[in-house]
Structure formats: C-alpha cells, structure tokens
Design a protein around this nucleic acid. Structure first.
Length: 554
RNA sequence: UGCCUGAUAGUAUAAUGGUAGUACGACUGUUUUUGGUACAGUUUGUCUUGGUUCGAAUCCAGGUCGGGCAACCA
C-alpha cells in the first residue's frame, strides 16, 4: 500500500524506538480541550496520532484535557467525539484529565514533601514581576521559604475551599534564573471555585496544563506524546515533572501546526465568529471546523487524503486551501451522482419539437458505470443557464448564440434562431430548432458541436434552494494579516439562490448522496431541507478553465 | 541584550555523505455529449559565506531571515 512512502519524522522516531526495544509497543493520544469545536488543524493532529499508532500496531487514546472548568462544556465533548468518529478513527480508551484529579493532587503533595513545591500568596502581578524577563533572571519571594508542613497544611486548606480564587497558588520550585521562563517556579495549581462539566463542585483547585498533561500521559503509558511547536519550551517542564515524580517516561515530540490560506485556525477566533454572528454556528459550511466541512459536503476520505498529502514537519507552513479543494474534487468526482440544475434560467423554446414528453436516459456517473442511469424528461420548453447564451458571442464561446449549435446533454443538438426580448431589452427566451437525428446514443446527424449544455424541462422542473459559498476571508494569511482578523472577513461569502430548477430525479435522492450538478460543482443536501424544500450546499466548484480564459481575455 | 526553534521550486513534502524527486499550482497539447474527468508534456528549487570531503541539501563554523518564550489558558 503506502509501504514505499517515506516515513515522516515522528514515524522515524517511533520506528527507531521500536527497533531498539525502547518500547514493546506504542501508545499515542489525541488530547483536545473541550472548549470548542474541532477544526481542520485538529484533523491533521488526529490523522497523525491515530495514523502513527495504526501503522506501527499501537493504540491511541482520546483524552479530554479538561483542567480549566471555566471554558469547558459537555457540548464540546460530544461534538469532538462525533468529529473524530466521523473522520474514521477509533480510540482505544476515552479518558479525561479530570479522571486524574486525585492522582494529580497526590503528585503535588509528593513535590511538596520533596521540597520541590510551595504555596505562594502573591498576586499574579507580583508573580509576573518576580519572574524577571527573558534576558534578566527572576527572584524568589519569601513564600518560597515556607516549611514543608506549612505548605502541606495550606495546600490541604486550598483543596478544602478555605481560600478565595486568586489568593494562593502552588508553585514548583525549580530555577528562577532559568533561561526558560517556564522553569521559573511555574504555577502548578490554582484556586477556581467553578463548576466542572464532569467533576461538578468536587474540586475548587485545578492543576495547570503543565502539571496535568505530562502526568496524564504517564498515567496512560503514552509512549509518544505528539503536540504542536508552541509547546517546545514546555518540554523541559514536562520532563522535570516526570523525572521528579518518578513516573512512566512519556516523551513529547512537536510538529508544526497546520495553517491554511484564507482560513483561521484558532478556536478562540472561531468562537468569536460564532458568537458575533459572522457565521451561523460552529457548523456553518464556511467554517474550517470539521462539522462545518462535513455539513458543506466534504468527505472524511478527502480530509484524510489531504492530511496525508501535506505531510508532517517542523517548519512553519501556510498550505494553499486549493490543495484541500483538489482532494475533495478528486474523491467526489468518483462518487458523486450527476444531476442537471439550472441556477439562473433563460427559457428555450424548441419550435419544431412536438407537444409531448420524451424520457432520455443519462448516466449517473461516467466515472462509475455501476452507478447506473436515470431518465430525464425532455420537452419543447426548457431552461438553460443564462450565462450559456450570448447574443453577441466572443470568438471562443462554444455555447448558444444566434445561429450557433450546441448539444443539450444526453439529448439533442439545437440551433438558435431567434432571441425574444421584453420592452426593456432583457432576453426573455430563445427560440431554437432541434435536429431529430442527433439524439444522444443514436446520433446519425454527423454534426459535431463544441459545446454541451445542461438543461431542465420547464414542465418537470423541481425547485431547490442552492447555497454558494466563497472563502470567509479576503486575505491569504489571515493569521498574520495587519489589524484585527475580523477586518478581513469577506462579507460576500454566501450567495443564496432561492429558486434553482432541478431535474426531477433529485426528488428521489437520499440525504447522504453526493451530487455533481453538471458544469456547476459538487453539492450536498443541507440539514435545513424539509419535505417540500430542498436546500443544497455547494461543497466546491468544478475546475473552471473557461472562467480563467475569460479573465485572461479581458 | 538572553534562550529555544526552523530554512529544499509559487505551496507543501522527499532524498539521512553519492543522479535534487513527488504532489498541488501554473503553462502546452490529446481525448471527451460536463470548458469537468483522464492522459501526455513544459516550467520553476537546496537562505548565505567559509570549512571538512574524491564527493555536501545532508557534517562543522560564522552570518541572514522566519517563528516561539515573561497567562492563576491549553
């Protein structure tokens, strides 16, 4: 399969560790904080963590890093589980850092007893000031001299709820002059009288990330703890805790997080878009969330393929969103059912066609003959796309124009004879004649035309709402653009067509189907659809070389 | 001013002292009842200066540029 494909640097480390017998088998984990919905960047992390374990016969835990009760909610836990499953991954265990609160508390006691932690009554401003700066060392305060017994008592009282938020913290006693700021006696426990989504009000002190993550890894015997580059400076502290606690030696490795053009990859900013109404919820099809992409019609397979193609490395990157679009087109091309839908209609009257209806067969997917075919009603009154007719056509325009011939997909060749306009000069319909011998499948006309158009019979058309999406931001590198990221929002990212005209076959299709509206793009039924109203989201357009040609021309 | 970290076509990623390759993009062309798909081809790269070596993207030294580090966030 992908056996010849070279290993990424994480996989190389794993292969080496396995070969050396450092571990008999490996365990990884995906550790989201349940404070928001997962986005495409998380998908890359999920793919990495689950993928590496799978490739080397190991397992992966799903662990919720829920050590900050004020931002976390059960709703997020549920959405995260749904997203991971939808992406196609199965976790060996579902764990929560909050499961370990008692053990973590015990670890802090161990540190206090070893003289490696103390209770500090300073304010956060004082603590920050005493830390020094990256270029000048910090200074310990007098609280660091408290006796072990006093620290133990104070810590017990903190847990018992005797103190208000912010009045005391526990700090690890490491090195106030370390060049690594994180080692300057970092805070490991703080007081928070807040309701936790799992432990309720059982606790009023909560461990900090740095005192929870590595220990949780160790408790679960995680061999390779993979995280993003911003945690590199945390690794010293991660190792310090493991070493001084004498627990399972999990190791942390870092890779560069995914950045994508025209996209934000920050839960905080995504939350802002939701809360301030710039989008309609976390699963708005314009969002880079997994749920948004799913609703838009992306397939899990195409997202996995994308992750596979972008690879894993340590250098900062900005991946072109067009690669993601390529991946989804590639997959959808193979599975999507072809349908004809006219967005902006112009009426075509075939003057020499009888007043009757004929059923014409058409393939559901030329890439997959097993998908069969359907029958499309054809009659003398049709809709075609307004942009497929021009009264005065440029040279390379292969579509309908006075005197010009085109093929109607799966039907006949027609020729335009006359343009009908209203008093204001707007084109209201086009009068054509058809070539009876040119019927698809039994064409004896000998005529070759360059253009093929999609169409819908007026009498048989069903209407549907179609939602067309554009990128949410106007600048490539939103994360590094000048000013507030909201200044760069594309206010024209949603275009709704209330009444598109679709061939009747669309009525019978199942909600989970993927469609290609011929010449228009890939579409997916939206959850807003009802029994009498269809709503389709455009997942992605087709590649459009004609549009490019037009742009070049003028 | 300190520490950590990175640098290969436009964008990603491979080559782990021995032919700089792949994908996407861009550009040509062929096929096509989707200006889609498929197929063929073209295009563009080792940050820099030295050093080690028969041989350096790879090892060493200096420089340049980018990212990160002083939350009771994760």
């Amino acid at each position: 399969m992908s056996e010849e494909k070279s290993l990424n640097f994480i996989e190389e480390i794993v292969e080496e560790d396995l070969k050396n017998g450092k571990y008999p088998s490996i365990t990884t984990r995906f550790p989201p904080e349940p404070n928001g919905y997962l986005h495409i960047g998380h998908a890359a992390s999920i793919w990495l963590n689950f993928g590496v374990a799978k490739r080397f016969g190991g397992k992966t835990n799903l662990r919720f890093d829920d050590t900050n009760p004020s931002t976390e909610e059960t709703e997020y836990v549920e959405s995260i589980k749904g997203d991971v499953r939808w992406l196609g991954f199965e976790w060996a265990n579902e764990f929560y850092a909050s499961n370990y609160f008692e053990q973590l508390y015990g670890f802090a006691v161990v540190l206090i007893k070893k003289g490696l932690a103390y209770v500090d009554d300073s304010t956060s401003e004082e603590i920050a000031a005493q830390k020094g700066t990256p270029t000048s060392p910090g200074k310990r305060n007098s609280f660091s001299d408290r006796s072990m017994d006093e620290n133990l008592t104070l810590f017990t009282d903190m847990r018992a709820g005797k103190y208000a938020d912010g009045t005391k913290v526990v700090r690890a006693k490491i090195d106030m002059s370390s060049p690594n700021m994180l080692l300057r006696d970092p805070i490991i426990y703080r007081i928070k009288h807040a309701h936790h989504h799992r432990t309720g009000d059982a606790w009023c002190i909560y461990p900090m990330y740095d005192f929870a993550h590595g220990q949780s890894d160790a408790i679960e015997n995680i061999t390779h703890s993979v995280c993003t580059l911003e945690f590199v400076p945390h690794r010293d502290l991660y190792d310090w805790c493991i070493e001084n606690l004498g627990i399972f030696p999990s190791r942390q490795y870092e890779f560069a997080r995914l950045n994508m053009t025209y996209t934000i990859m920050s839960k905080r900013k995504l939350l802002q878009l939701v809360n301030e109404g710039h989008v309609n919820g976390w699963d708005d099809p314009r969002m880079s969330t997994i749920s948004g992409m799913r609703r838009r019609g992306y397939t899990a397979e195409s997202i996995r393929e994308f992750c596979d193609r972008i690879g894993v490395a340590k250098r900062e990157n900005l991946i072109d969103v067009s690669l993601l679009e390529f991946c989804v087109r590639e997959h959808l091309n193979k599975i999507a059912l072809r349908r004809m839908v006219v967005f902006d209609p112009v009426k075509v009257l075939i003057t020499n066609y009888p007043d009757s209806t004929e059923l014409l067969p058409s393939e559901n997917n030329p890439e997959d003959h097993s998908s069969g075919s359907r029958e499309i009603p054809f009659s003398k009154e049709l809709y075609i796309e307004r942009e497929d007719f021009m009264e005065v056509a440029p040279k390379k325009y292969f579509r309908l124009a006075p005197g010009q011939m085109v093929r109607l997909k799966s039907a006949y060749i027609i020729q335009c004879n006359e343009v009908v306009k209203d008093i204001e000069g707007n084109i209201t319909s086009v009068r054509c004649t058809y070539i009876p011998e040119s019927k698809s499948g039994s064409d004896t006309s000998g005529i070759n035309v360059k253009g093929t158009l999609h169409w819908v019979s007026v009498e048989h058309a069903v209407t549907a709402e179609v939602r067309l999406y554009d990128r949410l931001f106007k600048v490539e590198d939103v994360g590094n653009a000048e000013g507030d990221f909201k200044d760069h929002i594309n206010t024209d990212s949603l275009h709704v067509i209330q009444n598109a005209y679709a061939e009747p076959a669309l009525k019978n299709d199942k909600a989970d189907d993927r469609y290609q509206f011929i010449r228009k793009g890939y579409f997916h039924l939206d959850k807003d659809s009802t029994n009498d109203k269809f709503v389709f989201n455009r997942t992605v357009t087709l590649k459009d070389t004609w549009a490019k040609e037009v742009k070049k021309g003028g």
